[in-house]
Design a protein around this nucleic acid. Structure first.
Length: 564
RNA sequence: GCCCCCGUAGCUCAAUAGGACAGAGCACCUGCCUUCUAAGCAGUCGGUUGCGAGUUCGAGUCUCGCCGGGGGCGCCA
């Protein structure tokens, strides 16, 4: 479907060219025409402030330019009126009959309504969550997953080839540390006096896991060399944590195409190859026994360590830093797997790492414009006035699972994507639970369920929308509903181009509200034979509305229930 | 000290590339269920967009300074 606003932009362009041809406007280069949605209904369905921007080049007063554009506007069956408006807007009002006919167009598109055809179909990777697999997820990672998965859905709708990936941090010190903590709780479960090491993982879940391993494997890990037991328990622990992360994420409808192991970057020699490339470009040096990336040579503030020195870290496989993996990973994404774009969803606490990854990409000869690192701000968890501090090391936090249990997966996911990513979120658990009944997500889902109920009632009465004449839809509430549905493709375009999923839930609330108002004013299923035609038309209308709501909910990863 | 993000109604947040009189939900108050789901509808109340300058025809949005909150500046992960 071509976006209405793109068609209108073309018409505005033609109007200006027509005016220039007749001499009503002087010649000048046409800037890109932006069509916007005005805030007030009186200002029409669409508007452009182009005359205000054109005033200088056209050497005319803005309002006069608006008048000229309106007077030279080419005829279109979609447009009823074009009105100049002070101080220099052109307001465009759609033709109601054309609007009504879009119901048939929407129904024809079916579940694909909202899909776009991009100017260029790109191969895009979205990498999200990627939380350390050493414990349960907290709400922050939930925000990551909700944003990433929704964004991936949006990019698919926008016509791109999207791959969803979870990067598993299964390399280096933390695996051993996690393993050492598990070894301790495991040994404790078998009656040994074995304290959890300094800086180890302390949570109750570590104790739980230790007990479970003791039950499952007996004392076999006490029989082998300690270092081996620690390593094996570490990997075992990561695998079982990953399985539970996956279960939690699936509850929220967050899914992945691939789980990518950090360790594989080192085992496959990928990192070694990338290091060689950097060395060939003279961007690697040795200092104090460590191997450094010469980021300063690329304009960064500081150089950064790629491989720690043996004096500091004894185990060879624990020497590569996070940056080392990040450098190999970005190479893998853009050069090996050849994604056109790689989108990373990171917590704001990693913002300091952004310049180094970008610098590394440049150093490897990759175009940094292909990389987007989307930072989302922290979620502050409160219970009333009290801030809930979270730390995986101390094991003190509210898990995402607990939150989902209390509030529900749909509500959690909806709340987490409703705020713009760069807005720090305040999440009051008391309020969230209290308000879960009145959460906007239920308002939207309720609209969908209501339509399902109407269609069920209609089916029972033997009424269908087949052959309905949608041009009978002339009630203001009907037309407003159709106009609202027509905004879905624009929302997809907006959210995809700006990588801002939060527009979707706001649109959903809007659309649901307009449906509820329609529902109050216009009865769909009527037993009066005189209403047969309007009933048919309205059944088409609500079918289209149901489809539009369902699509919007699906894009957000939220269920569209048939009943509530 | 330096760097990044944020500050909008009592609360949680929107505001599409700088556009028109800054909008929703929650909370509060007033009405509305004999007909398709009242998890609903209609309405009331609520603002010096943290403060002060600047750029612009036009600033919540851009620039500078200040105030407040969060985060980051390791051979941690």
């Amino acid at each position: 479907m071509t976006l209405v606003k793109n068609q209108l932009a073309d018409l505005v362009k033609q109007a200006i060219q027509n005016a220039q041809a007749t001499g009503a406007l002087p010649p000048f280069d046409l800037p890109e025409v932006f069509i916007e949605r005005p805030q007030k209904k009186e200002w029409g369905d669409f508007a452009t402030s182009l005359p205000l921007k054109l005033a200088r080049d056209a050497k005319r007063a803005p309002l006069q330019i608006a008048q000229v554009i309106a007077a030279h506007f080419p005829p279109s069956d979609a447009v009823a009126r074009v009105e100049p408006s002070a101080p220099g807007f052109v307001n465009i009002v759609l033709n109601d009959a054309w609007v009504a006919r879009q119901v048939d167009a929407i129904l024809a598109e079916g579940a694909r309504f909202g899909d776009l055809t991009p100017a260029r179909r790109e191969k895009i990777q979205v990498e999200y969550v990627s939380v350390n697999p050493t414990g349960p997820m907290h709400v922050g990672s939930g925000r990551n997953g909700a944003i990433g998965d929704t964004l991936a859905n949006i990019l698919v709708a926008a016509g791109h080839d999207v791959q969803r990936e979870f990067y598993i941090n299964d390399n280096g010190t933390q695996v051993r540390q996690f393993g050492a903590s598990l070894f301790a709780t495991y040994a404790q479960a078998l009656g040994k006096d074995e304290p959890v090491p300094e800086g180890g993982y302390q949570g109750a879940y570590v104790v739980e896991m230790g007990k479970q391993y003791a039950q499952q494997y007996g004392d076999q890990y006490l029989q082998m060399p300690r270092a081996q037991a620690v390593r094996e328990l570490g990997r075992l622990g990561i695998d079982s944590v990953l399985a539970s992360l996956r279960a939690t994420l699936e509850q929220m409808n967050v899914r992945f195409d691939r789980w990518f192991s950090e360790r594989s970057l080192h085992e496959s020699g990928q990192f070694a190859g990338v290091l060689k490339r950097l060395q060939d470009r003279g961007l690697v040096f040795e200092k104090d026994g460590a191997t450094w990336f010469a980021a300063q040579a690329l304009g960064e503030e500081k150089d950064a360590v790629l491989i720690r020195s043996p004096q500091v870290v004894a185990e060879p496989d624990e020497r590569p830093t996070y940056l080392a993996s990040d450098v190999a990973y970005v190479w893998d994404k853009l050069a090996v797997r050849q994604f056109d774009r790689a989108i990373y969803i990171w917590g704001a606490d990693h913002h300091g790492d952004v310049p180094r990854v970008i610098a590394a990409a440049r150093a490897l000869g990759l175009d940094p414009a292909r990389i987007t690192i989307l930072l989302y701000q922290f979620v502050t968890l409160r219970r009333g006035e009290q801030v809930v501090k979270m730390s995986k090391r101390t094991g003190e936090f509210v898990t995402l699972d607990e939150l989902i249990d209390e509030v529900g997966a749909d509500a959690v996911r909806f709340m987490l994507i409703t705020r713009a990513a760069d807005t720090p979120m305040d999440f009051d658990l008391d309020l969230a639970v209290k308000q879960s009944d009145e959460n906007p997500v239920y308002y939207v889902q309720y609209a969908h369920a209501r339509i399902a109920s109407i269609l069920k009632k209609a089916a029972e009465a033997g009424a269908t929308g087949d052959g309905g004449d949608v041009t009978r839809l002339t009630h203001p509430a009907e037309l407003e509903l159709i106009r609202a549905m027509l905004r879905l493709p624009e929302m997809v375009e907006l959210a995809a181009s700006k990588l801002e999923p939060h527009h979707l839930p706001h649109y959903a609330i809007d659309l649901a509200g307009i449906f509820h108002a329609f529902y109050k004013q216009c009865r769909v299923v009527s037993s009066d034979p005189a209403d047969a035609e309007i009933t048919r038309a309205r059944l088409k209308l609500v079918a289209a509305a149901k489809l539009t709501l369902a699509r919007t909910l699906n894009l957000m990863g939220v269920r569209a229930p048939e009943s509530m």
